[in-house]
């Protein structure tokens, strides 16, 4: 039981780390590149506009898809490694 508990704690802390990392990327591509850092990225042009504009209109959405699939793949793998899957 003690073993199970420590395994569960390890599973949960791995999950939290993964969530935190994913949220950093999530915020960076949308609030960062798409809004706050847009003036800093104005030098990089993308098809008639700048990189910040591209992130706000398309880049953030594409990144969101990447984040979800990465998280799902990583967590479903972790479930199996820890023997906690259904």
């Amino acid at each position: 039981m003690a073993d199970n508990n420590s395994k569960a704690a390890q599973y949960w802390s791995t999950n939290l780390r993964l969530i935190l990392g994913s949220l950093v990327v999530w915020a960076f591509v949308s609030y960062g590149c798409g809004i706050l850092f847009r003036p800093l990225l104005s030098g990089i042009s993308v098809g008639g506009a700048d990189l910040g504009f591209w992130f706000a209109q398309q880049g953030a959405i594409l990144s969101f898809i990447g984040i979800i699939f990465f998280y799902a793949w990583r967590m479903n793998k972790l479930d199996k490694e820890m023997g906690l899957e259904e």
């Binding site: 969530i19 994913s22 949220l23 999530w26 949308s30 798409g34 504009f53 706000a56 209109q57 953030a60 959405i61 969101f64 984040i67 979800i68 998280y71 799902a72």
Partner: peptide, 20 residues
């Protein structure tokens, strides 16, 4: 550009849903 919020806002919520 000013209304890009709708694009990011209505999609970014799914990241929160999937993880949280």
């Amino acid at each position: 550009y000013v209304n890009s919020s709708f694009l990011m806002g209505w999609t970014g919520g799914y990241v929160l849903l999937a993880m949280l």
